[in-house]
Design a protein around this nucleic acid. Sequence first.
DNA 1: TCAACATATGTTTAATTGTTCATATGTATA
DNA 2: TATACATATGAACAATTAAACATATGTTGA
Lengths: 124, 124
Amino acid sequence: MAEESKEKTMNVEKESQAERETVIHKMQEQQPDDEILYDLAELFKVFGDSTRIKILYAMFEHELCVNDIAGLLNLSQSSVSHQLRILKTSKLVKFRREGKSIYYSLDDEHVRSIISMGMEHVEE
Amino acid sequence: MAEESKEKTMNVEKESQAERETVIHKMQEQQPDDEILYDLAELFKVFGDSTRIKILYAMFEHELCVNDIAGLLNLSQSSVSHQLRILKTSKLVKFRREGKSIYYSLDDEHVRSIISMGMEHVEE
DNA sequence: TCAACATATGTTTAATTGTTCATATGTATA
DNA sequence: TATACATATGAACAATTAAACATATGTTGA
């Protein structure tokens, strides 16, 4: 009796173990291509620098030119320009020229959403 | 006449320039504390590594133990464990012990949302 | 308690990356 | 077109960090 119960339990465990392996196997197929996950990581890497986050956040409400940003955040013009290039390349910001100045702004709503979600997580 | 028109234009430009400066000044006050933006960047930094993204994505549907992950993603046990520690510290994953194994899963819906948002941006 | 398994941690090394300084490009105006 | 202003770019350096290897901790069952 105790023997049977034990065996039964073991069988159940074996089965759920086998099931788990099947699930895991399926997951391996469902997992997106490495390339896409690599791109995804690259995207978050761009958000993962405090200077760039400050720049992005500053543009939340209003477009800004390079000098505005440098003054606002107390950063060198060069540093801001380098970071804006990275943000441009990742399509996180867009820009328009007006005379001598170039005005930058957030490229789309995804950017806002991602930052907002992150904020919610951080503020807990 | 032409003179007056020019002056008027200049005034308008001056005013909007002053307005812009006011707006920028307000922004400086609205900008969250440096510390929060620093934490936010730190959070995204955690998402900004392809190994960690792969691990997180693997856990999208199902909890996994360290060995599962290592096997699934073809990573060393050590590497997975190190990365899980980082994910734990950032509260992106939670875990429960079952016998010898420790099962990890995504900590909350924010994690899923942030990754999904990122995916949408990348897939464009 | 001991052996085997699962996970965690410490350390070293190679590669990545943000900033700074110097300089270049581009634009408007006198 | 010459000068000043706004932005971009190149190169060098310092700091960060992921992976690998070795080892430690913790758990189970004999």
